[in-house]
Computed example of a mutant assay.
Amino acid sequence: MKPFDISLIILLSLFFLSFLFYLIYGKLTERKFDAIVEKFKKQFGYTPFSMTVGKNGGFFFWGYKESYLICALLFTNFPATKKTLTQEEIIFFKNLDKSDISWFYIKYFAMVIGTLCFIGLLIMFKFRAE
Rank of each mutant, 00 (worst) to 15 (best):
F4K: 06
I113H: 00
G45D: 07
L8K: 12
D5R: 13
S13T: 14
E88H: 08
L121P: 00
N56R: 14
F78W: 13
T115G: 10
L85P: 06
E38L: 15
L85F: 07
L20I: 15
V53Y: 06
G58P: 02
I10Q: 07
L11K: 05
W62K: 08
F78D: 15
L28G: 00
T52M: 13
L69C: 12
K27H: 11
L12S: 14
I10A: 12
T76F: 03
E66A: 06
F61G: 00
F33V: 01
I119F: 11
K82N: 08
G26Q: 05
I90Y: 01
Y46K: 13
Y105H: 09
I9Y: 15
A110L: 00
G26K: 08
E38A: 12
P79M: 03
I91Y: 12
K27V: 12
F4S: 09
F78Q: 06
K126T: 00
T81S: 06
I6M: 08
F44C: 03
W103L: 05
G114N: 03
Y105W: 10
L69M: 15
V112D: 01
T52A: 14
T86A: 02
E38C: 04
F93N: 05
M124C: 01
G58S: 08
I106S: 02
Y22R: 04
E66D: 15
L17N: 04
F59Q: 05
T29Y: 07
F92K: 03
A80T: 09
Q43L: 09
